[in-house]
């Protein structure tokens, strides 16, 4: 075997390698950018779905923002409490109220409950229907039921029920807030998962009109306000609003609401009721029996 040719080949390749390695080493020294090692560590912790739910351009953007103090440690909606705790550990901060938040549609006006203004023919999207005087349903505040939220959900957590209302699968929902952004009626709200009492109506019409529009509307009767022992619910602008600072989730308001516009989730009952009523796989609570 020709030793000389081997030496030449190895030498030239090695020389090239040496030359470029030297170049890279110099570049590495001169051009080194001080990168906060915490950014890489956060990148390793977060799920990396690049969903944009945090409001930053991708996961790298979020990690960078956390280190720079622009984002909170619990800012990643996909990762949830686990990830928040890990990020907090990396950043050396405490997290407060890192409870998982899930989306919930604040309307119960499905096809069964609501009055119609006409037959809607047009593009099957809530945004399009909003432009055409609000689609099929008469309520100006209620759910249009055409599923923009379901289409926007990156995690397949929202289904439109047969009654044309979005049903959120709490297990799949990451609280990214995409549905909140997309709903033209602003009906998707993010709530901590422990919330048990909600006013599921956004209708600001005066009671008399609200009664005609929907069987599950808030008619601003004020019964809940009177019943609440903690002064946590008030009718503001013809709509009952819960002050969650004060609310103890006792559910008394829900029991008196004549239109069952307030839901009160009581743990054990939920599963059975749902399975029986809607036939949906894992829906959220229906309201009062």
């Amino acid at each position: 075997m020709d030793l000389q040719s081997i030496l030449i080949a190895a030498g030239s390749m090695g020389g090239l390698g040496l030359f470029f390695a030297a170049g890279l080493a110099i570049a590495n020294k001169k051009l080194q950018v001080e990168e906060d090692p915490r950014v890489t560590r956060i990148m390793e912790v977060i799920p990396g779905a690049n969903c944009g739910g945090c409001g930053f351009p991708g996961c790298a953007g979020f990690a960078d923002a956390v280190v720079k103090g622009k984002a909170k440690a619990d800012g990643c909606p996909v990762g949830g409490a686990d990830v928040a705790a890990k990020i907090a550990a990396i950043m050396g901060v405490e997290i407060s109220g890192g409870e998982r938040r899930v989306a919930r549609c604040m309307c119960q006006g499905g096809l069964e409950e609501i009055a119609y203004q006409g037959e809607y023919l047009g593009a099957l999207s809530c945004i399009a229907a909003t432009l055409v005087s609000g689609g099929k349903k008469l309520c100006e505040f209620g759910c249009l039921g055409l599923g923009d939220c379901a289409a926007a959900c990156p995690f397949d957590a929202i289904k439109i029920s047969a009654n044309r209302l979005p049903v959120v699968d709490n297990d799949k929902c990451t609280g990214c807030g995409k549905c909140v952004d997309v709903c033209p009626r602003d009906l998707m709200h993010l709530h901590p998962i422990s919330y048990k009492v909600r006013v599921l109506c956004q209708n600001h019409d005066p009671g008399r009109y609200a009664t005609k529009v929907c069987t599950r509307s808030c008619i601003a009767c004020g019964l809940c306000e009177k019943k609440c022992p903690f002064d946590a619910i008030h009718v503001i602008d013809n709509l009952a609003v819960i002050d969650y600072e004060k609310c103890k989730h006792c559910g008394l308001c829900a029991t008196v609401c004549p239109n069952q516009a307030i839901e009160h989730i009581r743990k054990k009952k939920i599963v059975k009721e749902d399975a029986a009523a809607a036939g949906e796989k894992t829906a959220v609570s229906a309201a009062q029996p």
């Binding site: 081997i6 080949a9 030498g11 390749m13 090695g14 090239l16 390698g17 040496l18 390695a21 080493a25």
Partner: peptide, 28 residues
């Protein structure tokens, strides 16, 4: 520790070995 020497040594070694292996292969 600065890893400048490491960069140079590792890359040079890899290219050296590669060159030698390919030369052997070629002669075959």
């Amino acid at each position: 520790m600065s890893n400048t020497p490491k960069i140079i040594i590792v890359l040079t070694l890899i290219t050296l070995i590669s060159g030698a292996v390919l030369a052997l292969l070629d002669s075959y």
